[in-house]
């Protein structure tokens, strides 16, 4: 009897391992091996020949080139990380807001949802770049033509702010944000879906109970919706961070890809590892903050 139960557990655990075997093989050959190779590329010069590729040991040369001699990498890196730090929270808040809107029950919801999911379908920033420059040119032609040139909305805003006597750094920050609002709205697609699924997993009984106790919608948002969404918020933050720093519009990534196409693998390995390590630190900080929040909430779902 005992023997049979043991064998069932063992058999089940082997079955489970069997199911995940594809990932184990894939991880070894299509992740760990190339990952290790890319680390070795940092310290070597990679020459691709017809028969294969050769590594010549160069020590710290690649890293030194990327950090000291390359004129654009450091500035690109700083710009990308700063963008990441303010864009990620904005995208996540937008996504939450949109998800709450389309989660409500109202007439025409089906159509509105179909429209709001469009960014998921056109999730390519390459297409977005072209659309954006196109739409800007179009709206300028569509009636905002001012004598001698066109005025964008942020130009007008900039004038307004300058006249009201604010410091120029502050104005620059504001106009950067307003300029990229369009872009950021378009990058909320997947996060919105994740939030929507999360919102629907919150049991309605919680809202009913709090409504009976006299809580307003505002209160139940802060006391029920947000705490219940904490794990999903973490998921979304991680997704947005990863998505943001692998985005095709990201300057560091553009530089990495340009050098990849020229087969300068030593440099690109150095660049992408430096970038990745910085992002890893950001991710760890996010995880740490969420661990603290979870502890305060007294729950340990994740």
């Amino acid at each position: 009897m005992k023997h049979r139960r043991m064998s069932l557990t063992t058999r089940l655990s082997w079955t489970g391992f069997g199911f995940v075997t594809p990932f184990v093989i894939g991880f070894l050959f299509f992740f760990l091996k190339p990952l290790w190779q890319s680390i070795t590329f940092i310290f070597n010069k990679v020459d691709v020949t017809l028969e294969g590729y050769q590594l010549t040991f160069t020590g710290w040369e690649n890293l030194e080139y990327v950090l000291r001699k390359d004129a654009t990498f450091s500035t690109n890196l700083i710009e990308s990380v700063t963008n990441l730090l303010w864009q990620v929270p904005v995208i996540v808040v937008f996504a939450l807001f949109f998800a709450i809107i389309i989660n409500q029950k109202f007439r025409g919801r089906v159509v509105v949802r179909a429209v709001f999911f469009l960014p998921v379908i056109i999730a390519s920033s390459l297409v977005m770049d072209i659309i954006r420059s196109d739409a800007a040119a179009g709206s300028a032609l569509a009636g905002e033509v001012v004598a001698g040139g066109t005025v964008s909305q942020s130009d007008a805003l900039q004038d307004l702010l300058t006249n009201s006597g604010l410091s120029s750094d502050f104005i620059k920050a504001i106009t950067t944000v307003t300029d990229s609002l369009f872009d950021l709205t378009w990058r909320t697609g997947v996060q919105m879906i994740i939030f929507l699924a999360g919102l629907q997993s919150i049991p309605t009984t919680l809202y009913e109970a709090s409504a009976i106790e006299g809580a307003t919608a505002w209160e139940s948002f802060w006391k029920i919706t947000l705490p219940m969404l904490t794990p999903i918020m973490l998921l979304n933050l991680v997704y947005t961070i990863v998505d943001n720093f692998t985005d095709t519009g990201n300057k560091v990534m553009v530089q990495v890809m340009d050098n990849n196409r020229l087969v300068r693998y030593g440099w690109t390995a150095a660049m992408s590892w430096i970038y990745f390590l910085i992002i890893a630190v950001v991710l760890m900080v996010v995880f740490f903050i969420f661990r603290m929040i979870e502890r305060n909430n007294g729950r340990s779902k994740y």
Binding site: W14, F31, K33, L35, N260, Y265, S272
Partner: peptide, 27 residues
């Protein structure tokens, strides 16, 4: 299923999500 090293393996899955494809693309 429960098997030895399941949690470690799942962490590795998360790792494949987090590490950018560009890092391993040349190799």
């Amino acid at each position: 299923f429960d098997f030895k090293g399941k949690n470690l393996l799942f962490i590795l899955v998360v790792l494949t999500i987090i590490v950018p494809p560009q890092t391993i693309l040349p190799s």
